[in-house]
Amino acid sequence: MAIQSWRIRDRYYRLVGSRCASCGAEYFPPVYRCRECGSDKMKDKEMPKTGRIVTYTQLHEPLPGFEAQVPFYLALVELENGARVLTQVVDSPDEAVKTGAKVKATVRRAKVEGESGQIIYGYKFIVA
């Protein structure tokens, strides 16, 4: 696993973001300083695993490593705590993928790294 992926595996597997110990604001991906109150007292916090699609598109020209998966849905999902996640939406009929649709998180293969063959796992969402 690339070092970059290894360092943030809890973000990929468990949607670990951050919560401000001063004002309670929650963020995903995690931040080092609260955008609401400026505090640097940020704690790891697992995000809710459900939310709604804010907007979405269908990709036909993906980034390297995702070629075999096209076409696939990429969506901006607002979680129950207000944090927003850019994510693939999988295992859902075309007619179900729409703005406002309720979704839930799952863990899937994101991609397989080049010659090393290491598998990068990460969050994706399914229409609930």
């Binding site: 998966q69 999988v90 295992d91 799952t106 863990v107 899937r108 293969r109 598998i119 796992y121 994706k124």
Partner: peptide
Amino acid sequence: ASMDEDTVT
């Protein structure tokens, strides 16, 4: 299993 699923997922 879909192409992005395996025993781990």
